[in-house]
Simulated assay, not measured.
Amino acid sequence: MRSTSPGGHAADTDGLRAKRHAENFPVALKVLPGRLRSDLEAVYAVARTIDDVGDEADGDRTALLTEFGGELSAAFDGAEPAHAVIRGLVPAIRAGRVEYEPFRRLIEANLQDQHVTRYGTYDDLRAYCRLSADPVGRIVLRLFDVADPEAEELSDRVCTALQLLEHWQDVGEDYEKGRIYLPQEDLEAYGVTEDELGAAQASRRLRELMRFEIDRAAALLGSGAGLVGLLRGWGRLAVSGFIAGGLATVDALRDTNGNVLATYAKPGKADALAWLVWLQVGEPKTGRRSD
């Protein structure tokens, strides 16, 4: 099945499904009620399409992102969208379960990607994640009818951590695309040159840097894991799935011992499931589960 996507490109729904299954976390646990699963999958399809246009589309990506954002905004104003991924979001829009602002920030992040390829400081990178990652958590909380400042703040920590972990999985791939998310101040502090990011194996200095970055992201994820305790019902389970996927990704990244260039750190499903159970019955913590 294929459908129209921004700028006349075809959106491959099978491709979106494959990318959903390849994520570090379950986008929509199968045990969730049908409406919630549909809403989460629709949100993912829109967010993934925004990222794909920003990363992979042929032609003027800025224009394509602007076009997609305009059609998405119009859908929130009641217009009937042409793009299939936006049409999939219409039931949630019409029911008032999602708002446009978080999606606008996702588009802004991808527009920023078109001209910003380096981040000087960790704070600069965190500011980018507030556009590229945190809005997704806000959307998810809204779907579960959670409107609590403490929950939102913890959600932001979780989402930024998940984004950072994804960046640390993709250091070599991002470098090939001309982007470096490792803060320039950290590269300098560890004596790592940009050229080292394109090697087949991570240098000793890069491995040390990556262990530092992985631990920092893990600590941030752990600091947001208390979100689980603020939630009830399906929201608690769904968010636990996201955090469990992140914790399993931390495990996989740590298993590389910092050599993220030689091996793609793919989290194991069994590890993620074990973390999911732990989050439901134990105290959330960062690192491998205690036996």
Rank of each mutant, 00 (worst) to 15 (best):
5 S>W: 14
7 G>R: 09
9 H>T: 00
12 D>V: 00
14 D>C: 04
20 R>H: 11
23 E>C: 15
27 V>F: 04
28 A>P: 08
28 A>L: 12
30 K>A: 15
30 K>C: 08
32 L>E: 01
33 P>L: 12
33 P>V: 10
34 G>Q: 10
34 G>D: 11
35 R>I: 07
38 S>A: 15
39 D>R: 03
44 Y>Q: 14
44 Y>L: 10
45 A>Y: 04
48 R>P: 02
51 D>F: 04
52 D>W: 03
54 G>N: 05
55 D>L: 05
55 D>I: 03
56 E>R: 15
56 E>A: 15
58 D>M: 06
59 G>R: 14
61 R>H: 13
61 R>V: 06
69 G>F: 06
69 G>M: 11
71 E>C: 07
72 L>I: 05
73 S>I: 01
75 A>K: 02
79 A>F: 02
79 A>D: 15
79 A>G: 01
81 P>A: 02
81 P>G: 01
84 A>C: 01
87 R>G: 14
88 G>A: 09
92 A>G: 10
95 A>V: 02
99 E>T: 14
102 P>M: 11
102 P>L: 09
103 F>N: 10
103 F>M: 13
103 F>L: 11
106 L>R: 10
107 I>S: 03
113 D>A: 06
117 T>I: 01
117 T>V: 10
118 R>S: 05
121 T>Q: 13
122 Y>G: 02
123 D>H: 15
133 A>P: 13
134 D>L: 01
135 P>N: 07
137 G>F: 13
138 R>F: 08
139 I>L: 13
140 V>G: 03
140 V>L: 07
141 L>E: 06
142 R>N: 10
143 L>K: 12
144 F>E: 07
145 D>A: 15
146 V>L: 10
146 V>N: 11
147 A>Q: 08
147 A>H: 14
148 D>R: 03
150 E>P: 02
151 A>R: 10
152 E>W: 08
152 E>I: 02
154 L>C: 05
154 L>Q: 13
155 S>P: 09
155 S>L: 08
159 C>H: 04
167 H>E: 08
168 W>G: 00
169 Q>K: 03
171 V>P: 08
173 E>C: 00
180 I>Y: 11
180 I>M: 07
181 Y>S: 09
183 P>V: 13
185 E>M: 05
186 D>H: 14
187 L>W: 07
187 L>M: 15
189 A>T: 11
190 Y>V: 02
191 G>F: 12
192 V>S: 06
194 E>K: 15
195 D>A: 15
196 E>C: 06
199 A>K: 06
199 A>N: 14
200 A>N: 14
200 A>S: 15
202 A>C: 11
205 R>I: 00
208 E>G: 04
208 E>N: 09
209 L>Y: 10
214 I>F: 05
214 I>H: 08
215 D>W: 01
221 L>E: 07
222 G>F: 01
223 S>A: 15
225 A>Y: 00
226 G>F: 00
227 L>T: 00
228 V>S: 10
231 L>H: 04
233 G>N: 08
235 G>K: 06
238 A>H: 12
240 S>T: 04
241 G>S: 08
242 F>D: 00
244 A>L: 09
244 A>R: 12
247 L>K: 10
250 V>N: 04
252 A>T: 09
255 D>P: 03
259 N>E: 13
268 G>N: 06
269 K>T: 11
271 D>G: 02
272 A>K: 13
275 W>E: 09
279 L>D: 04
287 G>F: 12
288 R>C: 08
288 R>K: 12
290 S>Q: 10
